[in-house]
Write a protein that binds this DNA or RNA. Structure first.
Length: 877
RNA sequence: GGCGGUGUAGUCCAACGGCAGAGACAAGCGACUUAAAAUCGCUCCAGUGUGGGUUCGAGUCCCACCACCGCUACCA
């Protein structure tokens, strides 16, 4: 108790001290006021085609943030980073005269809300609304220039009605292999439309998470545990909705080329899709009609195959198991199925496996080779079966060594380094080379050998060239309450879609939305809702959280439309006319969505594009990933480490402008950067210096316009610095190099800090340059100057003024100092008129007495003049 | 293991292949002040992770290695 009382006292003393510390500038007096003003005057409203204030001559600029999941923790400094970057761009482009679409919304369906609801008994709608309100308040307290009239939430029936509508577009279409485009299912003339729909039902084994009471997509399972919560996941067969994203693999890869995305993200997507070319080869089974089809990327090594391996779950396992091996095989299968994915993929462990007791015939040479099962072969990839070539595959080699299986070398390395490797059975060479010990391939290089053997296999009917992908179809249903219901009903064991007039399908009001403890979704408990008609029932699954975020950027363009998901006019205006493949001009968000969200959204976009609803084949033209903001210990921010910075606290202590500016000043947007409170104070002091360029404080602590300000001609130095600042800030904003733009504005401020009298022109320019970064401060000074100096160019709002232009002529200086190098080392300096050309600079350098002295008569063999920079004299010895 | 990124003053970070320093933090000194805070001014500090190579010239380009971060992981 004594301790508690003592620390309480300390807190009081500390807060007294803090309240005594005068604010460096009175941000508390105006930040909220301007936020209110912008809001009330709709200052950042974007006009759509057809609106009375629409300016057809203005270019459009669509700058988008990855909308947040409104969690109970509130806004994170990481959100602030990306959102500030886009806000700077939005404000900048607005000042440049563009029609800027800069919207915000909520990705509000999803597991955490539902789990919180289950724990507290509160309906997820209530907590979600509360969280949204908190997020909105926080975002508004940072002065982001969103057009709030376009705010959307994925949980709003007016929104998810169209999410369901898009699902029906998928359900009612297929990809015609002839055109490689999605087409209405009515154009499909086969006899089983359900087998080709882009949304279809599957009974394959899925990732079931008992703790969460739902299935998860492969992508949502990390190390055998759920990505959300980290609970164990097991595989069990269940009837599920799938989306046929695999129909788009080739386009999802090739269309990356036209996008302005970081190469690393493109590469991540390519890797995720995992295209690999190879061949399927059929191995007949000895003494049986059965055959095993394997997939390999190295058909050229077929002569080196010494055994076959099936995944333990392969459907042929039972029929190929001999009676003698039955017990061992069953035991092995059981052991595998009880292992978590994490255990199965643990590379450190020894390879395991069991022979089935039957043999396959290698089609190229008639050799009998044993068939095994082993869990290093995965059931979901390729054909779930491989031919093992231990001489040329690390995994097969390890397995062969463990079980003492034969190893046959069929590729010889051609390069000296690889050839130097020992060629005995201890080594494994998995590179390309020259085929050996392979009658019909001997002497061919790997690429040729592959082509030839594929041709051979095809001719003989033993196989064919094929391409496989790691990407699987997208498991699209969840056993949840808090998600979009499917617009699907079931009757007599078959499914059909609801009509568009029946949308939205709203989730039923339920008291109890807890998981049922079985694989039955919670919606099964809403018996009235479930019964659609006498004979039909509703689909009980809901959509995953990704659904709403797959198309939200489209809805922003036309958020209130009741007739279409987006009007054709709004779509073609905001999403571009097809000159570039992507519609959104700039999309900023974290790398964590590099594959899932971005791949899913691209997929939906392409389907809608194929069906004629959109004008561009890609959603996001330019993508930037902001880096992670770390704690001041350089570690990832986390509650357990106690290094989490709460943006609200920074705002109340230093103001929104300081927080925004600091996060931009920390370093390059894409980099991870550690937090530093003293760094925040640094930019805070900078903002105070800008404030004092215009304002002075009297004895009583009241701020008034500085007496030093005057309509005063700029000195040539001042003019040069000012215009250099316009240039640098403009260019740096365009390239998202905000840290260096701020640095230049600091230089500019320092230049004018000591100036008496201080030309008002400095503020007319600087305030506009700084306003995208620190909008409140600039708006306030702008307004005060406009009041004090009417007709001096401070009319209206700073955020609705115009972006200044620089004049190159003002940037030139009269004289330039060149460095004079001798053999690359700086030995002197030389000042010449700016107008001096290359020859005269060279001549001046060679005549300079100091230089001549250092040269000491040595012969100058070569002179390099870098204009405006240096002269390098190359001398012998 | 694979892919990607980053290594520059005590710290965070700048630098079209061209004199390593834009800015900030921290430190120190000075001015203002009775004093302090705040403010203003000045100063100090690294040869760029290591080793090679290309070049008149390399922090920057190439190769190898090391460290840290992120992603991914038996994908045949």
């Amino acid at each position: 108790m004594a301790d508690a009382g003592f620390s309480g006292l300390m807190v009081i003393q500390r807060s007294n001290e803090m309240s005594l510390t005068r604010k460096h500038y009175p941000f508390t007096e105006f930040e909220a006021r301007w936020q209110k003003h912008w809001m009330e005057t709709n200052a950042f409203r974007a006009a759509n085609p057809g609106d009375t204030d629409f300016r057809p001559e203005a270019s459009k600029y669509f700058v988008l943030d990855m909308f947040p999941y409104p969690s109970g923790d509130g806004l994170h400094v990481g959100h602030v980073e990306g959102y500030t970057a886009t806000d700077i761009l939005a404000r900048y482009r607005r000042l440049c005269g563009d029609n800027v679409l800069h919207p915000m919304g909520w990705d509000a369906f999803g597991l955490p809300a539902e789990q919180y609801a289950i724990k507290t008994g509160q309906h997820p709608r209530i907590t979600t609304q509360k969280n949204i309100d908190r997020f909105r308040t926080q975002l508004q307290s940072l002065g982001f220039s969103y057009d709030w009239s376009r705010e959307i939430s994925t949980t709003d029936p007016g929104y998810f009605r169209w999410t369901q509508w898009i699902f029906l577009q998928l359900y009612n279409s297929w990809v015609n292999p002839a055109t490689n485009r999605a087409e209405p299912i009515s154009l499909y003339f086969g006899n089983d439309p359900d087998s080709v729909r882009l949304a279809f039902v599957s009974d394959k084994p899925v990732n079931w998470c008992p703790e969460l009471g739902t299935v998860l997509a492969n992508e949502e399972v990390v190390d055998g545990k759920s990505e959300v919560g980290g609970f164990p996941v097991e595989r069990r067969p269940m009837r599920q909705w799938m989306l046929r994203i695999t129909a788009y693999t080739e386009r999802l890869i090739s269309d990356l080329d036209g996008l302005d995305w970081p190469d690393s993200i493109k590469q991540l997507q390519r890797n995720w899709i995992g295209r690999s070319e190879g061949a399927e080869v059929r191995f007949p089974i000895e003494g049986s009609q059965a055959e095993v089809t394997i997939f390999t990327t190295r058909p050229d090594t077929l002569f080196g195959a010494t055994y076959i391996v099936l995944a333990p779950e392969h459907p042929l396992v039972d029929s190929l198991t001999s009676p003698e091996q039955r017990a061992a095989v069953d035991a092995y299968k059981k052991a595998c199925s009880s292992k978590s994915d994490l255990e199965r993929t643990d590379l450190a462990k020894e390879k395991t496996g069991v022979p089935l007791g039957s043999s396959a015939i290698n089609p190229v040479n008639g050799e009998k080779i044993p068939v095994w099962i082993a869990d290093y072969v995965l059931t979901g990839y390729g054909t779930g079966a491989i031919m093992a070539v231990p001489a040329h595959d690390e995994r097969d080699h390890e397995f062969a060594m463990t079980f003492n299986l034969p190893i046959i070398e069929v590729v010889r390395a051609v390069n000296a380094v690889d050839q130097a490797l020992p060629t005995d059975q201890q080594a494994c060479f998995s590179g390309e080379g020259i085929a050996i010990n392979s009658p019909i391939l001997d002497g061919l290089v790997t690429t040729e050998a592959k082509k030839k053997i594929i041709r051979w296999l095809k001719e003989k009917g033993y196989g064919r060239g094929t391409i496989t992908y790691k990407l699987r179809d997208w498991l699209f249903s969840r056993q949840r309450y808090w998600g979009e219901p499917f617009p699907i009903i079931w009757e007599d064991g078959s499914h059909r879609s609801l009509s568009h007039e029946e949308l939205p399908v709203e989730p039923p009001e339920m008291e109890d939305f807890k998981p049922t403890g079985t694989s039955e979704p919670p919606l099964s408990k809403a018996s009235d809702w479930v019964r659609y008609s006498e004979t039909a029932t509703r689909e009980l699954n809901t959509m995953p959280q990704w659904a709403g975020s797959c198309w939200y950027y489209l809805r922003y363009c036309d958020p209130g439309n009741k007739d279409r998901f987006i009007s054709r006019e709004a779509e073609s205006y905001w999403m571009g006319d097809g000159a570039k493949p992507g519609g959104v001009d700039l999309y900023v968000g974290g790398t964590e969505h590099a594959v899932l969200h971005l791949l899913y959204a691209r997929f939906w976009h392409k389907v809608l594009f194929d069906l004629g609803h959109l004008t561009t084949p890609e959603p996001f033209q330019k993508l930037v990933n902001q880096g992670m903001i770390l704690g001041d210990d350089g570690q990832k921010m986390s509650k357990s480490r106690g290094n989490v910075v709460n943006p609200d606290e920074v705002v109340s202590e230093y103001g929104a402008d300081a927080l925004r500016l600091y996060e931009m000043f920390m370093g390059p947007l894409e980099h991870g950067k550690p937090w530093s409170m003293t760094g925040v104070e640094g930019v805070y002091r900078f903002l105070a210096r800008v404030w004092r360029l215009a304002m002075t404080e009297d004895q009583e602590g009241n701020w008034g316009i500085s007496e030093d300000l005057a309509e005063q001609e700029l000195t040539s130095t001042q003019r040069r610095v000012l215009h250099a600042t316009i240039k640098k800030v403009t260019q740096d904003i365009e390239s998202l190099a905000f840290n260096t733009a701020i640095s230049q504005m600091m230089i500019c401020t320092n230049e004018f800090t000591g100036a008496k009298p201080r030309p008002i022109e400095s503020l007319r320019i600087l305030l506009r340059l700084l306003s995208p970064f620190a909008p409140h401060l600039c708006e306030e000074i702008w307004w005060r100057l406009g009041t004090k100096f009417p007709d001096s160019g401070f009319a209206g709002l700073a955020s609705q003024s115009s972006w200044p232009n620089w004049n190159e002529e003002y940037l030139v200086v009269d004289e330039i100092t060149y460095a004079v190098q001798i053999n690359g080392k700086v030995r002197g300096h030389l000042t010449v008129p700016t107008s001096a050309d290359r020859e005269s600079v060279e001549k001046t350098a060679l005549c300079d007495p100091a230089i001549l002295e250092i040269l000491d008569g040595k012969e100058v063999k070569k002179v390099i003049v870098v204009p405006g920079r240096l002269v390098n004299l190359v001398v012998a010895g």
